[in-house]
Simulated scan of single mutants.
Amino acid sequence: MLRNAFQPWHLVLVVCLLVFGSERLPDMARSLGRSMRILKSEAHALRSDDTA
Rank of each mutant, 00 (worst) to 15 (best):
M1F: 11
M1K: 12
L2W: 10
L2E: 09
L2P: 03
L2A: 12
L2Q: 07
R3K: 14
R3L: 15
R3A: 11
R3I: 11
N4P: 06
N4Q: 10
N4M: 12
A5P: 00
A5W: 00
F6N: 05
F6R: 12
Q7V: 11
Q7F: 07
P8I: 04
P8T: 00
P8N: 01
W9T: 12
H10R: 02
L11A: 04
V12M: 15
V12Q: 15
V14P: 02
V14L: 14
V14D: 05
V14Q: 09
V15Y: 14
C16Q: 15
C16R: 15
C16A: 15
C16F: 13
L17H: 10
L17F: 13
L17T: 14
L17Y: 07
V19K: 08
V19F: 11
V19R: 07
F20A: 05
F20W: 12
G21H: 01
S22G: 14
S22P: 08
E23R: 15
R24W: 02
R24I: 03
R24M: 13
R24Q: 11
L25D: 04
L25P: 01
P26W: 02
P26M: 10
P26H: 04
P26D: 03
D27H: 11
M28N: 07
A29R: 10
R30G: 05
R30C: 06
S31R: 13
S31I: 05
S31Q: 06
S31D: 09
L32Y: 04
L32W: 07
L32G: 04
L32T: 08
G33S: 11
G33A: 08
R34A: 03
M36H: 06
M36C: 06
I38G: 08
L39E: 09
K40P: 03
K40M: 03
K40D: 04
K40Y: 10
S41G: 01
S41D: 10
S41N: 04
S41V: 00
S41H: 02
E42L: 10
E42R: 10
A43D: 00
A43R: 00
A43V: 05
H44W: 09
H44V: 10
H44T: 05
H44P: 01
A45N: 01
A45S: 02
A45Y: 00
A45P: 01
R47C: 05
R47I: 11
R47N: 06
S48K: 01
S48D: 06
S48F: 01
D49V: 03
T51M: 02
T51W: 02
T51G: 00
A52P: 07
A52Y: 13
A52F: 12
A52G: 13
A52T: 09
